[in-house]
């Protein structure tokens, strides 16, 4: 799993990646130095919970992705099997392209998690 994340980090616009469970517990991490894995995974857990609640109450169906963006990049959260892939996005990243390029990684992660 670590290897998949390391490969993902080579995609243009990706500034780090993390795999978390539905409860926000870190399963694998390839973050840059200075990013607190525990803090990030905890906040992601909260984001997952609130997004699921939004989907449930507004009858939007299953959450596919969540994107939170600031002036200097952001966080993209993608459903990957039973877990969630968290991709840190650089400010200049092309979000649409990045989502396309992360697809094969998502499939590989989902396969691994299903084992």
């Amino acid at each position: 799993m670590q290897e998949i994340l390391t490969q993902l980090n080579r995609v243009r616009g990706v500034g780090g990646s993390l795999l978390v469970s539905g409860e926000g517990l870190a399963m694998a991490s390839a973050l840059r130095d200075g990013t607190d894995e525990a803090q990030l995974s905890a906040t992601i857990g909260s984001l997952i919970e609130h997004s699921q609640r939004l989907g449930k109450h507004l009858e939007l169906g299953a959450t596919r992705h969540v994107h939170a963006a600031g002036d200097q990049g952001g966080v993209l959260l993608l459903a990957a099997g039973n877990g969630y892939l968290v991709v840190l996005i650089d400010p200049a990243a092309n979000l649409a392209l990045l989502q396309l390029e992360t697809k094969p990684f998502l499939e590989r992660i989902a396969q691994r998690l299903a084992l």
Binding site: S51, L54, G55, L58, E59, L60, G61, A62, T63, R64, H65, V66, H67, A68, A69
Partner: peptide, 9 residues
Amino acid sequence: TWTVAASQG
């Protein structure tokens, strides 16, 4: 910005 994208909305 933030976005939550789901299967039906």
